[in-house]
Design a protein around this nucleic acid. Structure first.
Lengths: 159, 159
DNA sequence: TTTTTTGTACAGTTTATTCTGTACGAACTT
DNA sequence: AAGTTCGTACAGAATAAACTGTACAAAAAA
């Protein structure tokens, strides 16, 4: 009977982790979060290391990533000297927010870069207005820029 | 002057490819698409290989991935014996559609798997209704299932 | 038919990512 | 103060991903 529960937990870990990985987390980050989520209590680096069978160094680096994504929080508990981390619990909001923010930041940055290139092309086109190849290039840049703007708007829109 | 155009093309390739990679394409797939998009004409595997400086084998496997994602299309041209591929051109629709479909498929599949595990837990809970740990596990499964349903709905909604 | 050309499967190599063990500074304990 | 404990930086090892060259089946050309 206890075996059944263990088996269920193992399966949840595997499947839940897969889903979390879809949000661009590496496998260990995913398992770490899944474990903390199921544990429902703060854990130390040593405990995580023991539970997942990975080095403490790996816990340290991966818990930091999760922390930067606001997926876990460091908490204090009187009398406990080690760092304690716990999983934040509003799954959907948590993952979609950090995921979309990443998209928006990256896409906006790419858009700006494309815009710069286009400005450069326009400047050169001023000097040689009859350069048909350059003209075509500028048009392509324009369509790629529109694409980037649509992507940014798309994700902004979903928040 | 021709140098300027080359430089612009090179920069577009780099930046555009980065954006495409965000849609879960590997670097070569991304460069391949970017190149085909800028070329604005169908190309053979040998031409791509030459243009990107990578093996023909790599072209073959990566163009197939792009094709499966509906990002490129194989076309026929009278007199040309080799396979010809061209980039599809409605960037935004192309990328968002294939991206979201991938999300929806994967998330729905994960949801079903979680549902199965939950059914298993419920079945066991019928046999041992007083098992508080098992009860808690079932509740956790339920919340994870809700999460999955929200993810599926989220992406369905955006199409 | 035989010969050439084309696309791709597959094995092995190269390159990139992930993970571990050691080492060390900072903070706590005695 | 000296001695522990803790978290993490860093270099190297293990693992995974990407890429190449060889080989070969299918189709076209001779």
């Amino acid at each position: 009977m206890a075996d059944n529960k263990e088996a269920i937990i193992r399966r949840i870990m595997i499947e839940f982790s897969k889903t979390i990985e879809m949000f661009d987390l590496n496998p260990l980050e995913a398992r770490l979060f899944a474990h903390l989520y199921l544990a429902e209590k703060p854990m130390t680096l040593d405990e995580m290391s023991e539970a997942l069978g990975k080095s403490k160094t790996a816990m340290s680096t991966n818990i930091r990533s999760l922390s930067e994504l606001n997926l876990v929080t460091r908490v204090w508990k009187k009398g406990v000297r080690k760092d304690l981390y716990q999983a934040n619990r509003q799954l959907f909001k948590l993952f979609t927010t950090s995921y979309m923010n990443k998209w928006i930041d990256a896409a906006a940055h790419q858009r700006d870069t494309i815009k710069e290139i286009e400005n450069e092309a326009i400047k050169q086109l001023d000097e040689t207005p009859n350069d048909r190849e350059l003209k075509k290039l500028e048009e392509q840049l324009s369509s790629i820029l529109v694409f980037h703007e649509e992507v940014v708007a798309f994700f902004r829109n979903k928040k």
